[in-house]
């Protein structure tokens, strides 16, 4: 499996990265070299093997649904690059 420049562009879109032309070239080379290296895994028969997503057997961790103090709004928005009226400003999403 070899990634084309078009594949790289579509993965970049999924990744929300606006890559430069130069970056697309470099990444096409780098990623293809890594993918070649990943092929080594196909040597192993894993048809009877369960996947490991997590090494410790933790499933659902519940806590009591009790109200407790939340962080003050002024602090929560203090790192926002653009804030107004205690809200984060984002581009208008809905078309008028």
């Amino acid at each position: 499996m070899k990634l084309t420049r078009e594949d790289i562009e579509s993965v970049a879109y999924l990744s929300r990265l606006e890559l430069s032309e130069e970056e697309k070239d470099t990444l096409t080379g780098h990623i293809n070299r890594l993918l070649e290296n990943f092929e080594k895994l196909q040597e192993l028969d894993t048809s009877e093997v369960e996947p490991t997503s997590h090494v410790v057997p933790v499933f659902n961790v519940f806590r009591k649904d009790e109200p407790r103090p939340s962080l003050p709004v002024e602090e929560v928005i203090s790192n926002g690059p653009q804030v107004e009226d205690n809200c984060f400003v984002v581009p208008r999403v809905v078309e008028t």
Binding site: I8, V11, A12, S15, R16, L17, E18, L19, S20, E23, T26, L27, H30, I31, V90, P91, R92, V93
Partner: peptide, 23 residues
């Protein structure tokens, strides 16, 4: 507009190794 905000922000903010791993 919002996708473009994400794309430009991330393109400018992340370095090459991070972009490669995200990809």
């Amino acid at each position: 507009g919002v996708v473009s905000l994400y794309q430009k922000t991330r393109e400018e903010g992340f370095g090459p190794e991070v972009k490669q791993r995200i990809m």
